[in-house]
Amino acid sequence: MNDSFLRLVNIVKRFGRREVVRNLSLEAAEGEVVALLGPSGCGKTTVLRVIAGLEAPDEGEVWIAGRKVASDGINIEGPRARHVGFVFQDLALWPHMTVAGNLDFALASVSVARRERAARITEALRMARIESFASSYPDQLSGGEQQRAALARAIVSRPGLLLLDEPMSSLDTELKGELIGEIAALQRSLQVTTVYITHDRAEAAALAHRVAILREGRIERIDEIASL
């Protein structure tokens, strides 16, 4: 038995003949933020997709909250059952729904009662500091506002695990700094286990308790940011 909230054991993922993730193992304790740092194409996003259940690992196991959710090519639990929040690199906000509609879809899908949904949406929007844009459509928002909306959508269902895939890659430095501070505060108040992907050392340093450096599908080093 292991007390890690998230545990990846010897994960291998191939696309055709190309091995994108190679024998990767990683653990995160409950409430911990682990950053995966590495250059483009090193397999960071694939690791996140394997955790979310959007890809099945060809080899190895994925454990979330003590449950084995994937093992040797099979997703034992699908994405829905894993109860994760995901902020995609391109945000993937549904363009035909308002910001509140995006959040509501996430809640209604997991059968939260209508009255409770309204309260939860307001709370998530407030935490992501985007409550005044509840009835705006994604294309009416600025880059930073879209970012906040995607974050609000990821946390609204109170996930056990938050996965962030380079969510700030398209923002300017000033806005990035502002948002990192907000995400860190949000994470502290929610105490949700978080895996954060980035290729920016400063971002990793500002957010993560530990940083794993990925190269060619393998973890090269993993340690606290100060030691790295």
Binding site: L54, G78, P79, R80, V84, F88, A92, W94, S109
Partner: peptide, 9 residues
């Protein structure tokens, strides 16, 4: 990505 984001829930 839009579909994946929805498939999570």
């Amino acid at each position: 990505r839009m579909e994946e984001a929805a498939l999570l829930v």
